[in-house]
Nucleic acid binder design. Structure first.
Lengths: 195, 195, 195, 195
DNA sequence: CATGAATGAGCTTTCATTCAT
DNA sequence: CATGAATGAAAGCTCATTCAT
């Protein structure tokens, strides 16, 4: 019945989340005020609180939004019939492209503890789950002889770390497509696992 | 002579800077109050302002402290008589170890804009200088035939990014020495430049 | 229409300005805290900041409020068809009465530099404009032969100075109406221009 | 015996007072910090407290210094054998010149209550005494038929007010000597009492 | 649903003042 | 006498959050 209204509400909420994410990355979480977000969307502070419970909640949902997407992407890759090498390549490239695209809300939270203990745990759970999935790609490749490394965990951290860091310096450029960056990262990071 | 007193003062300032850096990383810049720092050092807020001009100044000096040390380390390596390969290895290892040791004040600033335009520029200048030095190591190696890569700049970013990220997850462990981490990173990141 | 609400808001802002002006004069700008103002109005500090940007802004707006009124009054007098003598008389009396009535926020600022360079300039602009208008009254009278003085500028300063000073000592008294004070000042200060 | 030392101390205290007065006028009482004064004199904060009990004390003594001098000047004039007219002329001129010379510490206090009730009373006592003396000049002149006015008190306030105000706008100029200003004021303000 | 208004807790910063050395 | 260092109270200001209308 009211599904139409509900849809509207969900959409509006998404709009708010996206704007919040943008500002959080642009100016930082603390420097971004609820009023900033409201102004940018031509709403009032009060209106935002109709869709969102708190500023913390806003940040949390931003993260969940992105993390869920990342996990889905990775799961799809893992469930495919590709070789370990191909899977790793696709994992790296898809993460690079997604981080560039979303400009990495994913990362905000890792850096500073601005969530309550409780929410922070949930965030870490998702992150850990993503890392586990990624690690399984490496582990599988090691087991089937495609990859060689004395330390899967460190390899994982090295790889994900270098990718996460892209959001620090990325700016769109004419002479370098996102695809090129993704290729460079996959080609060179794969070397860590082969030799 | 008052050199004794002066020494004391300089040392105290360093203590404050270090504690600030610790807390900034632990809880984030905004979540850390001057009072937090004071309490941790069993001083009063006022006493801190005797040594430091403002919270922003505190952050800025934290960064300068670490950046200067990093640059010095790298310069020393560059000026040595080692081969390009050895230089890269030493650059990576020394940065990894220093980041672990100082727990990376180095990074705080890149992520969020919490400094005034003016101070931020100074910080970026130092960072850029470090990156240039590092790039010169790669460039030199490429010129003397030791390294191969189609994109020196991306290689640099990949390498430094992965190292910077260590501060995100590092925790001291019994079964893994810092030296081992440094070795793993140098050994595997060098692969990016060789093959 | 929201005009009702708007009106309320404007009125409230005026109430705040007036109370601030009162306290600034009573206790001085620095000795008056925002909390003082808030308490006096039975509001909270935060509420005041909803209407006003800063303490400095508060002082600036107080001044503008009064200065604008003074200038309007004087302009009206100048544009009338009265003789120069009558105009001077009315100028003096209206200023005396207004200063008594508003207890002279007009003056606070001249004495101490508590505004930023920028705002202070704006204030001086208004004051200068008022003085120019007043000077034109004297000049006109001198030209049409009504007034005699060897130094119009000093005469202006002497006259306005003595009037401004009223706010220093004025207290309502039973045996002396404001009108009487105004008459005394106009009658005697006019002597400066005649003889 | 130690009179030499004492002299030194008294002189130093005077130096401090004068510098304080200067800064109080230049930047206002609240905007001037003890450190400002100390820096300007190349002393330390602590050293100032050896000569002065508190910031309030400093302001109070500044005032006393000037007020005492003004009162002495006026008393001397009164005790002379001049006519009432001459006495008034000399009173006005000497006050104008003194205010210009000392740039009017005299005034700071009238405008804002920054002293404790107790000290403020003492200040007002001195001021009242000065005003009484001045009033006596007018009264004497009225009694001997030299002056005419319906309200001696208002006349006094008008005259002293206009003179006090000089400190507001006075700046040394090439084309106008202090003596000229003093003459202009005496000549024109005397008109209030004659006609 | 949306808004204008208000709250209140908490933060950075300043400074007069004190005191051991 | 003088100083460096420290204290602590108080101020200005910000903002997430709430709520009557």
């Amino acid at each position: 019945m009211s599904s139409f209204r509900e849809e509207r509400a969900v959409e509006k909420k998404l709009t708010i989340l996206r704007m919040a994410a943008n500002l959080f990355i642009q100016k930082g979480y603390y420097a971004t005020t609820i009023e900033d977000i409201a102004n940018e969307l031509r709403m009032t502070k009060g209106a935002i609180y109709y869709y969102v419970n708190s500023k913390e909640d806003l940040l949390f949902q931003c993260h969940t939004l992105v993390a869920t997407k990342c996990i889905e992407n990775l799961q799809e890759i893992i469930e495919s019939n590709d070789t370990s090498l191909k899977k790793l390549e696709k994992s790296i490239e898809s993460l690079v492209l997604y981080i560039i695209e979303e400009n990495a809300v994913f990362n905000i939270i890792n850096r500073h503890n601005m969530l309550s203990e409780e929410l922070h745990k949930k965030v870490l759970l998702q992150r850990d789950y993503y890392e586990e999935l990624f690690e399984s790609v490496l582990e599988d490749g090691k087991n089937d002889g495609s990859f060689h490394t004395e330390n899967v965990k460190l390899a994982k951290l090295l790889i994900l770390g270098s990718i996460n860091n892209i959001s620090t310096w990325y700016k769109p450029r004419e002479d370098q497509s996102n695809k090129e960056i993704a290729n460079f990262y996959s080609k060179n990071l794969i070397k860590v696992l082969t030799e």
